[in-house]
Nucleic acid binder design. Sequence first.
DNA 1: GTAAAACATAAGCATACGCTTATATGATTC
DNA 2: GAATCATATAAGCGTATGCTTATGTTTTAC
Lengths: 104, 104
Amino acid sequence: MIEDDIFRALADPTRRAIFEKLAAGSMNASALRKGMEISQPAISQHLSVLTNAQLVRAQRKGRFVNYAVNPEGLALIAQWLTKYRAYWPERIDDLKILLKDMDQ
Amino acid sequence: MIEDDIFRALADPTRRAIFEKLAAGSMNASALRKGMEISQPAISQHLSVLTNAQLVRAQRKGRFVNYAVNPEGLALIAQWLTKYRAYWPERIDDLKILLKDMDQ
DNA sequence: GTAAAACATAAGCATACGCTTATATGATTC
DNA sequence: GAATCATATAAGCGTATGCTTATGTTTTAC
């Protein structure tokens, strides 16, 4: 089940931080590492987890590897969320969420 | 970080199955257990995790405890998703996802 | 081709997870 | 209040997770 991988990948705060950085703009592992107190192997392992979860995409560019957000993973979360659309309007505060055209 | 709890809670397939059952209608732990090959303590522990993640609500009804979906958790996921709204249109297949009125 | 840079993989370790069995708590029924 | 039902907690166990250090790969630069 891919959902296992996606949710598990996002359960780690370091991984969410990496993902957030990538969402602001794709970059290689070294660039990602800057400002994060983490070892090189750790970043590499996290990126592997994110990639397997289809949240991130890897592409070799010479001796660098460019990492970018993979919309596939996000779409799968959105898709999962729509199953429980019935509960969204019951949100306590004033958040308004609308999802349409996903009746497949 | 509540996101840790939410994503971790959903990373387990048994927990997602429990959540899905509750989404179809609130019920107590015994009813939930029916049809699931799982021990009573296991269900209880899973429900505890889901409750802590604000995905589920517990309410005593005599000697039963009624469990129901807590929209709060779902809303937090939706909220998290909106941060990456920019990437949604890039979805490969024909899935159409639209989110509006969440500019808070 | 040799050295160095960017990244991945291997191995090991402490901690967390999900399950089990056993027991405790809370509430009803008689 | 004793027995029973519904649920929670405790303790223990095997496995997974996230990190580290050490070593491999792959590609560029000289």
